[in-house]
Design a protein around this nucleic acid. Sequence first.
DNA 1: ATGATTGCAAACTCTTTGCATCCTT
DNA 2: AAGGATGCAAAGAGTTTGCAATCAT
Lengths: 152, 152
Amino acid sequence: MASALRRAGLKVTPQRLSIVTALAHDDTHPTAQELFERLRGSVPAVSFATVYNTLDALARVGLMSVLRLGGPARFDPNTQPHHHAVCDGCGAVVDLPVPSLAPSAEAEAVVRAAAPGFVVARDERTFRGLCARCHARQAETRPGEGRRTKSP
Amino acid sequence: MASALRRAGLKVTPQRLSIVTALAHDDTHPTAQELFERLRGSVPAVSFATVYNTLDALARVGLMSVLRLGGPARFDPNTQPHHHAVCDGCGAVVDLPVPSLAPSAEAEAVVRAAAPGFVVARDERTFRGLCARCHARQAETRPGEGRRTKSP
DNA sequence: ATGATTGCAAACTCTTTGCATCCTT
DNA sequence: AAGGATGCAAAGAGTTTGCAATCAT
């Protein structure tokens, strides 16, 4: 873990280790704020700025990915290609395995037709909708009407 | 056009009309700032707050869609389901026709497996990469190395 | 007449930065 | 020792809001 940092040319500091380890055991895609609050009481306390700086550094070297979906950025330790389901009600983000949704040659063709010369690096797919809980809550509140969220 | 507003329960004001018409002839997905600057000199001048308020109102009634890709929100008059190609270099956004990329039953199945009970409303697909111009610029600058952007 | 809409400026949220100090290499 | 990293606080983006005046219906 520390070696991954060193390999990427980043110095290994206690703050960075605590951030990396906290994120490693987390699939909730926390925001910087959430991460900061969780680490406040840690032995190696981190400042808010360091959370941002570190996450930025980690993302830059590919040890972390950033989800910018509107509202605060969310951080995702999963650096493998994958997609997301985002709840419009509560903002929850769930990772989706990618295998069967791999970027197709067909998709590339569509891009090329609309944007000649465009070189596709990533195919990000986001399924928006309502998670089970929000869907149930919506149904009991106002049957047949959509719930609206505002972000950020 | 005015009738679309009325039908949606929104009052027809000169500001709204100028915003709607400005956006209608625009496929560059402008930000609120860009839209505001473009409308400054218009006959019915609009304030910055009104741009935001109006775009919010329009989006809420489905006459407009909002793209939150990190950085300032971008506005898209295209309310038909479609996808986007986003350039990591210059931030340009290009609309992609959707037909052949329609949300598949397979995709729904993947979502359901990872997030039981999740109801998919939209399948947003974003192809990130480099547009022709940025790709060429990158190649001449530092062959073989990626360009990084930071947003917002 | 009535209530939505406008506009201004101030408040807010999220993110980045300057700079002195500290720590990893 | 040298340069990156930290932490604080302050500055910057981007967005939202309170409130009085104004306008569409």
